[in-house]
Design a protein around this nucleic acid. Structure first.
Length: 105
DNA sequence: GGCCTGACTTTAG
DNA sequence: GCTAAAGCCAGGC
């Protein structure tokens, strides 16, 4: 580990790049960071959230668009944050088809 | 160096 | 369609 940047460091970087009104999945961030199977470590570091205001962890959701957890008040707050940002919801879950963040060229 | 944790994902029933 | 269990990775102690 610690080759150049900490794995989580890259995750935070990508998370911070997520545009407003869009969301990314843990798996997606893990894949962008180098390991699509490291979604576990991603979630753990998000919980620790050493960069709370710097990293919009509320824009990170599960692979199916459902919200899992939020260290700053709970998933309910997280859901409201996304709604206020203009994220599309469907059946109480994020509509990844419309609001999932995609790497911009 | 080894064990435990965790905001996940996937497959099976 | 939903619930349960197993598997996976990186970080922290």
């Amino acid at each position: 580990m610690q080759k150049n940047k900490l794995f989580t460091e890259r995750v935070y970087e990508f998370t911070a790049k997520i545009p407003k009104g869009s969301v990314a999945t843990y798996k997606q961030l893990a894949a962008l960071s180098g390991n699509s199977r490291a979604f576990r470590a991603v979630g753990m570091c998000m919980k620790k959230n050493p960069k709370a205001p710097a990293v919009p962890c509320h824009r990170v959701v599960a692979s199916d668009g459902s919200l899992c957890g939020y260290s700053m008040g709970g998933v309910e707050v997280k859901r409201q944050m996304l709604l206020l940002e203009g994220v599309y919801f469907k059946n109480g879950k994020v509509d990844l088809a419309r609001s999932q963040w995609k790497e911009q060229p």
